[in-house]
Design a protein around this nucleic acid. Sequence first.
DNA 1: ATATATTCTACTAATTCGATAGAATATATA
DNA 2: TATATATTCTATCGAATTAGTAGAATATAT
Lengths: 146, 146
Amino acid sequence: MLSKKAKYGLKAMFYLGKQYGKGPVLISDLAEEENIPKKFLELILLELKKNGLLHSKMGKGGGYSLSKSPDEITVGQVVRILDGPLAPIPCVSKTAYMKCAECDNEKTCEIRKIMMQVRDASAAILDHTSLLEAPKALFTVNRKSK
Amino acid sequence: MLSKKAKYGLKAMFYLGKQYGKGPVLISDLAEEENIPKKFLELILLELKKNGLLHSKMGKGGGYSLSKSPDEITVGQVVRILDGPLAPIPCVSKTAYMKCAECDNEKTCEIRKIMMQVRDASAAILDHTSLLEAPKALFTVNRKSK
DNA sequence: ATATATTCTACTAATTCGATAGAATATATA
DNA sequence: TATATATTCTATCGAATTAGTAGAATATAT
């Protein structure tokens, strides 16, 4: 499940994508426009900033803006920052791999094989969809065998 | 993220898949064999039974067995029972659809479009992988445009 | 100086997760 | 019919996570 945090974060990023090049946007405006609790949004934007996706300016005339053009920021990046790895289980994560405590043979683990496929499919979509092209993208999933 | 509950459940189901036709398996044996806390496993198997995936028999000579052949039970069915819908957000779930409270226009929601694709990709994999063919299945994800 | 914004630290209520405990019930068989 | 064997049911629990809120600190433009 996508958390509310990630959902809010994505909404905010899409909004900032549309405002890209028009100068900084106030948290207050963003919160009101996208119906996000302001205080919660503060934390979210801060986290996205600390991870290099946003640029901010304090004081009068300040606000938030994307740190690069919207077509260079993917949905996958945003989700990973706010919700952690895309992988359904840590042992199939490419960005945050962790061995399963109990698992003694990764190569033969059925669950791992399936979840690896789910991770790859999800990542293929989320990592190749930018804030700009999100509305346009189209994908299909094909079985190799059968 | 796949919960431990679902992970345990899948392990148990794969195990029962291998024992299919050989008579009922004891919870105790299953727990020990797959390293699952026994008391926790009891609840899991009960839930899978109540949802029609398992058959059980009490008393001596009893135990659990699949209610149908392993190739008729999919990983998706097991995961949905134990962890709920596959969809990352309720508004793209086919089995448990729910409108987003805030969303006023589903058609234009960027997040929805992307998560719909993620859901479809995940479901295509999990719903077409049975307990039997799980180890064999191979998938690819292709972009339509690009 | 002052108004305006972000930033930081801390807290909290509610829910979910990962179990555990113990009693109740059903079944085979001696 | 008594007994051992299994599942089933109800209830509880600690820890972690989620979804926020509160308020002070800090930076900046004018």
